[in-house]
Design a protein around this nucleic acid. Sequence first.
DNA 1: CGGCAAGTTTACGTAAAGGGGAAGCCCATG
DNA 2: CATGGGCTTCCCCTTTACGTAAACTTGCCG
Lengths: 134, 134
Amino acid sequence: MTTTQEPLIQIGKLAKQLGITTRTIRYYEEIGLMGPSKRSSGGARSYDRDEVLRIKFILKLKELGISLKEMQILADTFDSYNQRFDTITPQVLEILDLHIGKVNDKLTNLSSLRDDIVNYRRRIAALLEEQPSA
Amino acid sequence: MTTTQEPLIQIGKLAKQLGITTRTIRYYEEIGLMGPSKRSSGGARSYDRDEVLRIKFILKLKELGISLKEMQILADTFDSYNQRFDTITPQVLEILDLHIGKVNDKLTNLSSLRDDIVNYRRRIAALLEEQPSA
DNA sequence: CGGCAAGTTTACGTAAAGGGGAAGCCCATG
DNA sequence: CATGGGCTTCCCCTTTACGTAAACTTGCCG
């Protein structure tokens, strides 16, 4: 098996590509969301396709409101189970479902609050029309 | 017009009733979400029905993901328009609609991510069954 | 060889939303 | 009278997710 020369990307390029800063990538490594990355002889970090995917996944989860702390738990499980996707995905699904529930509730409440306000406003308008001046 | 003796509630009681701390109430005053409250001769804060409603409203908005900073903007508008609900509610609705949109998007994305993961998992499972051992 | 961009580590700073404790009033009560 | 609540103001502490500056290497270009 010839180790296919995977294309590696440097931290600066990657950050620019993803629209984040290098600090963020280092921070994710710092808190254990990413394993220690490969280093060039000079000590510069470089990332392969899998690592890039991992960062993208992290960003996606973050965007959806999942905290880095929650991801750390996932990451720990993931790593302690030797990167076996079949054991990790149920946990991901669990967390996702939890958030889906929360977000759904929030949406419901926001909408009903909106309705309440609209109705409230309507009632006030009606009152004002009824008695032009007190 | 006899100023109907409105029932006033003290900060401690109110906090307990709302399930928050007195610090939180003072904090809301501190950042201008609440106007300065009435004080007893001894300097203790007390709140009337309207102020209680205002705090409850704040808590509700907060629960729904609206930041205190956003509320400050509302509060400022509210106060600068002399507490006229008809001018303020459109702004509240605007902010609410914005959030409803965001939350809705989030929900959509969360769900589709969930689906992706489920499908991904399914494909892996299929692969594993096809070739029991590599 | 000079110099600059891009990388590194270390470490302090920041914003949001309060938490928690010290030190000091006010007042009801045994 | 002292003591125990409950209140007040100050003021520093905490967490999350990085920002930012300092000081130092590396790599490469002219």
